[in-house]
Amino acid sequence: MAGVELLSDQGYRVDGRRASELRRVQCRLGVLGQADGSALLQLGNTRALAVVSGPHEIRGSKSKALHDRAVVNCQYSMATFSTAERKRRPHGDRKSIEMSLHLRQTFETAILTQLFPRSQIDIFVQILKSDGGNYCVCVNAATMALVDAGIPLQDYVCACSVGFVDETPLVDVCYAEEAAGGPVMAVALLPRSEQVAFLSLDSRLHEDHLSGVMKAATVACRDLHAVLSRIVKETLQEATAGE
C-alpha cells in the first residue's frame, strides 16, 4: 500500500479508532413534519436523511400493485455537495440506481408488507455528507424513518461495512479506508434473529477470512442495534412524557 498505513503497529487506524470500533452515531427522528416518517442519521462524518411516505395508494401505473402485499419503492441520491468533488448528477446514475435496488431488496425482507395489500411504501434517502459506508448509513437512516412512520417491521435493519487489512477486519470503514482499494463487505442484519437481509463484497477476499469478517460485521451490527433502539426508546419517552 502506497504511503498510507491503514493499521498502525499499535493497532490504531487512520482516524484513531481501534479495528473493532464504530464511529459515533447521532440520530434524530421526525425531522420533517410533512412526511409520514423521517430521520437524520450521522455515522462519523457520513450523514444521511431518510424520508418515508406511505403506505398509500400506488402512484403512477396501477399495474405495479401487488394483490397480497405492498410495493416498496426506494430512491437513493447523493447531494451535489456531499463529496469532495462536486457531483454532476445527484441521482439517476448507474451507482445510485444500483444502490436504490439494494435498499429495496433489504427493506422488502424487513417490512411486514403483507399487511398492506395493493399499496405502496416510498423510501427516499439522500446522502448529505459522504465519508465511507454510504449504503450502511442509508439502511440505518431508512430503518429509523420507518420506525418514525409507524410502519411494522420484522426487526430493526442494522447495516455495517467491514474492511480487511493486515489479517484484521476493520469495522465501519471511513472514506480513506474504502478508497485504499482493499476488500469491503457491507452487511445488513436483522439483529434479533441474525438473519442477513443483504450482503455485498467489493474486490476479493480469501475464503479463510470470510467467517472472521462476517463475525466482526455481526458484532458491529448488534452494537448499532443497541444504539438505535436506545435512541428510539428515548424519543418515545420524550414524546409520551406529557400523556
Partner: peptide, 16 residues
Amino acid sequence: GTYTDDEHLVASVAGV
C-alpha cells in the same frame, strides 16, 4: 403492531 415468532410475542412498531 405485534407478531409472533417462535411462540414469542414481538412488537413490530415502536409505541405504547
